[in-house]
């Protein structure tokens, strides 16, 4: 059956994108901004957290890419389905 992927509506892509954006910002802060070593106990916390976010976010994007949700082209939504709560 023909179909297309859920793309931006796939929640894994949304999570992945947000975490990657945050990862980029924090990694950048880790290199350039005030590291506030007195607060963190001499750890570059932004850098470590930023890299971890890039890794996890990238993982979500890769997962969505490798196993996409395919929506059949002849799909008709069920009017009784309420996927977002009340």
């Amino acid at each position: 059956m023909a179909g297309h992927s859920a793309g931006a509506m796939d929640v894994r892509n949304v999570i992945g994108a947000l975490l990657v954006v945050y990862g980029v910002i924090l990694t950048g802060m880790g290199f350039m901004a005030d590291k506030a070593l007195d607060k963190t106990g001499n750890i570059n916390a932004n850098l470590i957290a930023g890299l971890a976010l890039l890794l996890v976010g990238g993982g979500f994007l890769a997962w969505a890419k490798l196993k996409p949700i395919v929506i059949p082209d002849d799909y008709v939504p069920d009017p009784d389905a309420h996927p977002h709560g009340q």
């Binding site: 859920a6 931006a8 509506m9 929640v11 949304v14 949700i69 929506i71 008709v76 069920d78 977002h84």
Partner: peptide, 23 residues
């Protein structure tokens, strides 16, 4: 942005509802 996308894609709601139902 997600809220807007959900509201706007009325014609495309299959994408949302199906990805919603197969969550």
């Amino acid at each position: 942005g997600i809220g807007f996308m959900v509201k706007r894609n009325v014609s495309d709601s299959a994408d949302f509802f199906l990805s919603g139902r197969s969550l």
